[in-house]
């Protein structure tokens, strides 16, 4: 135990970790699916080792999320070194198996403008290129990209599941 950490601080830190863990778990589930729990445990262990660096005046959630994300990046790097499969398989998110996720996505897509919806689905579902979408919709490629970016921003909004 680091000499400058006392038991009261430890207790406060442990309480902070417990409160922040669900948000970190949700983040890791989105990033690495079935491996989320393993990565979270690794992140909590790392956070505990680094608790001397914790500033109690700063919100603990953000601190743990940063730690969780860095742990996830290390985890990915280890996987890439150890696996022989191709990179696209490694970086693809696991197939969604939650009905509520499908509902969230369907609601988000339904809220898009028609052109944004067509381009988003054309690119990410149907595998069409920017150039193919531009030709199909008779739009400049930069306009297609703008619509696509806006559609992605809407897709990642938090409240579609509420």
């Amino acid at each position: 135990m680091p000499p400058d950490v006392d038991s009261a601080t430890d207790a406060a830190f442990a309480a902070m970790l417990s409160a922040a863990a669900p948000r970190a778990r949700a983040l890791l589930r989105r990033l690495c699916g079935a491996d989320a729990e393993d990565v979270l445990q690794e992140a909590l262990t790392k956070a505990w080792r680094l608790r001397a660096n914790w500033d109690p005046t700063v919100a603990g959630d953000g601190w743990l999320l940063q730690t969780a994300f860095r742990t996830f990046c290390d985890f990915r790097a280890r996987q890439q070194r150890n696996r022989t499969t191709t990179l696209p398989e490694l970086v693809a998110a696991p197939a969604p198996d939650r009905l509520e996720l499908q509902d969230e996505v369907a609601r988000a897509v339904a809220s898009l403008r028609p052109i944004e919806r067509d381009l988003l689905l054309g690119f990410h579902r149907d595998g069409l290129s920017i150039e193919e979408l531009a030709a199909r919709h008779r739009l400049p490629a930069n306009t297609v990209k703008s619509h696509l970016h806006r559609a992605r921003l809407r897709l990642q909004d938090e409240h579609h599941g509420r």
Binding site: R23, L31, D61, P96, Q102, D126
Partner: peptide, 22 residues
């Protein structure tokens, strides 16, 4: 952390588009 949470939602939702009916 806010940015990574937003990206994580996108990272999770983009593959789910493949399940939407054509």
């Amino acid at each position: 952390p806010t940015a990574v949470e937003r990206y994580a939602r996108l990272h999770e939702r983009l593959p789910a588009l493949r399940a939407l009916p054509v």
